[in-house]
Design a protein around this nucleic acid. Structure first.
Length: 483
RNA sequence: UCCCGAAUAGCUCAGCUGGUUAGAGCAUCUGACUGUUAAUCAGAGGGUCGCUGGUUCAAGUCCAGCUUCGGGAGCCA
């Protein structure tokens, strides 16, 4: 019975007028005791179901409320009213599931994002979140398409890990030991993880990169795309405790190749969304424009959402070295007028305000900053040759996007064993425990590079959503693990 | 974690320098209308003013602490 149904997207795009159809979906609004706006999630568009006057008894009519699920048999006809080209003239209406109008929290009106966040289990049924999560899906698909077309192998790196060497942040502990104080102890009073499930201390992964490198040393190119966990007490619009990250890793690849791939990748994702999610982007574009109107003129974005995406697609990303970036900042009017809260000097880590200045004020487009000081970057990044003593840099690159900040972080990896070991020692990383990683450098090491792209930040960028909690179905953040 | 701000009806918000019975729009319910586009019109119901304590003759309003939420910063993707 159900497989006879036509999805609303199909009906609206290529439905044949005067044909008998079956549609199913949820009621968005019911106007005039006669017009049902029905949505099944296949598109942001609703289909209008017309209930012929007097054809349905009062009791059933009263059950057609916002949120109720319906099965409609009827005929697709050209619409008499404005606002839609076709509609379904119903001859049978079946209520699949009632929705108590007094209790269902979604109303046919504009709700705040904050309120919808509290009812995240229902917010998919709104226009905005429908659009956001259809786009999220499209982007996920485009990730696989991009790498598949280029011969990358999708490698499933582990989620539970024993290495805490990446140093990408605080980790969530994974254990089956009792938490009531009765866990087995060593002689010095510390917990004896030899008795734990894995026989050692384990955590949730903060990055699949190190394992990814192992794959790249066999398949040439791999990528990972999976959940990542950081136990940082971050309370911002761009951090989650559980998020999804894409990490390609390429053998026979240097920093420039890495940048070229990252830029092509970001553009592919944007282009895919623009091609396949035009409806949803148009809705979000309008929503954002209305939001912008509420803001004072100075704080408004110069470009609309679609305009911004097109602009990013059509222009090369600016590529500058960290040293150039510092010089630009030092010569900026903002610096001279002492507008920066944090100091600017070679060797500092770029602060949010500095990145924003470069991206939003100076270049007004995505910027790739390269060759950061070695001291502020991770141990595995390749030391640049021929540096002035005291000004050693590494082959790192960050892509900074307007409004989001760092969307990609990557580097060419240190492939020279002695150099890598020296760096690990410097960073206090136990070389013996990482022997498996160092084997890549012992046996057929090659120049290689890779990067990590925060998937939610990419979804934020494409959808224009300001808060990262609104682009993941169920956000996990400090003090919040609902649903 | 730090800084700033907020918390009043189901939702969005108003409530002035403390003053007697806390309002509006939307939603809901009842009725009317019927080619509507967040339908419209008339009426009704709906409140522990986040929590705890304090100041005062009197607190939604002032003060302190707590909780939650939002914005910014740090950590990063």
């Amino acid at each position: 019975m159900f497989n006879k149904r036509t999805k609303i997207k199909a009906l609206l795009s290529h439905g044949v007028v005067d044909q008998e159809v079956v549609v199913m979906g949820w009621v968005r609004t019911f106007r005039n005791n006669q017009f049902i706006a029905l949505n099944d999630g296949s598109t942001s568009q609703n289909i209008q179901v017309v209930v012929p006057l007097g054809s349905v008894d009062e009791a059933l009519l009263k059950r057609i409320t916002t949120g109720a699920s319906l099965r409609i048999e009827g005929k697709l006809v050209a619409s008499l009213g404005k606002g839609q080209s076709v509609e379904v003239l119903a001859n049978l209406i079946e209520i699949l599931g009632d929705s108590d109008a007094e209790k269902f929290p979604l109303q046919p009106k504009k709700h705040s994002l904050e309120f919808l966040r509290e009812i995240a289990h229902l917010r998919f049924r709104t226009q905005t979140f429908g659009a956001v999560f259809r786009i999220r899906h499209a982007l996920a698909f485009a990730v696989h398409q991009f790498f598949n077309e280029r011969g990358f192998v999708y490698l499933h790196t582990p989620i539970i890990t024993a290495s805490d060497a990446e140093g990408a942040g605080e980790m969530f502990r994974v254990t089956t030991l009792p938490m009531d104080g009765s866990a087995p102890r060593n002689e010095d009073g510390s917990i004896d993880y030899k008795e734990d499930f894995f026989g050692k201390s384990t955590n949730l992964t903060v990055s699949g990169q190190l394992e990814g490198e192992l794959g790249a040393m066999a398949f040439s190119e791999i990528y990972t795309f999976g959940p990542t966990f950081r136990a940082e007490n971050s309370n911002t619009t761009r951090h989650l405790a559980e998020f999804w990250m894409i990490e390609p890793e390429m053998a026979f690849c240097d920093l420039e190749d890495n940048m070229n791939l990252a830029e092509a990748f970001v553009k592919h994702l944007i282009g895919y969304a623009m091609e396949h999610c035009a409806d949803d982007l148009a809705w979000l574009d309008t929503r954002l424009a209305e939001e912008e109107k509420q803001k004072p003129q100075q704080e408004r974005q110069e470009m609309g959402l679609v305009e911004k995406l097109k602009f990013v697609l059509d222009n090369d990303f600016e590529r500058i070295t960290y040293t150039d970036a510092i010089n630009i900042l030092l010569q900026s009017p903002a610096y001279k007028k002492k507008k920066f809260q944090y100091e600017v000097a070679w060797g500092i880590d770029l602060q949010s305000e500095h990145e924003r200045y470069l991206v939003e004020k100076h270049f007004k487009k995505p910027v790739i900053v390269t060759n950061y000081p070695a001291k502020i970057k991770a141990f595995y990044m390749r030391m640049d040759d021929g540096c002035e003593p005291g000004k050693e840099t590494v082959a790192a690159m960050d892509i900074l996007a307007p409004g989001i900040g760092e969307i990609v972080g990557g580097s060419q990896r240190e492939e020279r064993l002695e150099r890598l070991e020296a760096r690990m020692e410097e960073f206090g990383i136990p070389v013996e425990e990482m022997s498996w990683y160092l084997d890549t450098r012992r046996f057929g090491t090659v120049p290689h590079a890779g990067f990590g792209l925060g998937f939610e930040r990419m979804v934020q960028f494409v959808t224009g959503m300001g808060n990262i909690r609104d682009v993941i179905p169920f956000a996990r953040t400090p003090k919040n693990c609902e649903f």
